[in-house]
């Protein structure tokens, strides 16, 4: 009779984390950074499948890793936010609550399921000028095990976070214009990119949470718009 294997909980968790990290490290990076007009999300993405999406009026989502998994997370985020906004009010949908809910859901999968999610996500929220206590932007990062962290100025997820962050740490400053922010994003992603090809408008996905826009603040930049911003 064969004895079942014993593996310590530490070992199981370490193996799962190792597995998830391996999946994510193959992926390209995404940056969310604050600029003078709101929050900008820049992803290295040459495909037509979006990695960045709209969740609610002031909230955007970005995911790296396995597409089917982070896209599913984006959808449950939209369902969470729309249900909350419908049963209370639009102003009651907040980025922090959403990031917390993500952390719970992702952490739950990490502990309970055989296979952890091979993803990392950003929840970005642009500040609201109408409310004194809500003017600041928020950037949250949630990793494959449900670990949540909040970031000021910029936040990076994906394969080469350290290299991308090094560029941002030395060159980011407050009050960047939209064009400058896109260019800085490209430069940082260029450094982290494995292909080390010069990223351009057709290999970048750029979305903005525009502080000044009424209502839904999320905008996806067209290829022409990105080109103009990079050339300006």
């Amino acid at each position: 009779m064969s004895m079942p294997f014993y593996a310590s909980p530490e070992q199981i968790m370490a193996d799962k984390a190792e597995f998830a990290r391996k999946g994510i490290s193959r992926g390209k990076s995404i940056i969310a950074l604050e600029f003078d007009g709101g929050v900008l999300l820049v992803a290295e993405n040459a495909t037509s499948l979006s990695k960045v999406g709209e969740i609610y009026d002031r909230i955007a989502f970005a995911g790296v890793g396995k597409f089917s998994e982070f896209d599913q997370l984006r959808k449950i985020g939209v369902r969470f936010a729309d249900t909350k906004g419908y049963s209370y009010s639009r102003e009651d949908v907040a980025g922090q609550a959403l990031a917390n809910a993500y952390s719970q859901a992702i952490g739950e999968v990490f502990t309970r399921e055989m296979k952890p999610l091979e993803i990392e996500i950003i929840v970005a929220e642009v500040g609201d000028d109408r409310w004194e206590d809500h003017r600041r932007n928020s950037l949250y990062r949630v990793t494959f095990d449900g670990f949540i962290s909040d970031h000021a100025d910029y936040c990076v997820i994906g394969g080469n976070v350290d290299e991308v962050e090094t560029v941002l740490a030395s060159e980011y400053r407050e009050g960047l214009g939209a064009g400058e922010a896109v260019k800085l994003g490209r430069k940082a992603l260029d450094t982290g990119s494995e292909s080390s090809a010069n990223l351009n408008e057709s290999t970048l996905e750029v979305c903005v949470l525009d502080r000044a826009k009424p209502g839904r603040k999320f905008t996806r930049m067209s290829v022409e718009e990105v080109k103009r911003m990079l050339e300006a």
Partner: peptide
């Protein structure tokens, strides 16, 4: 929020019918 909700479609009305009927 759960990883696998019982409704997977694109309609908000159906989402409420399946998951939050008390809101309708």
């Amino acid at each position: 929020m759960s990883w696998r909700g019982s409704y997977q479609g694109s309609s908000f009305f159906e989402l409420l019918q399946v998951e939050q009927p008390q809101l309708l």
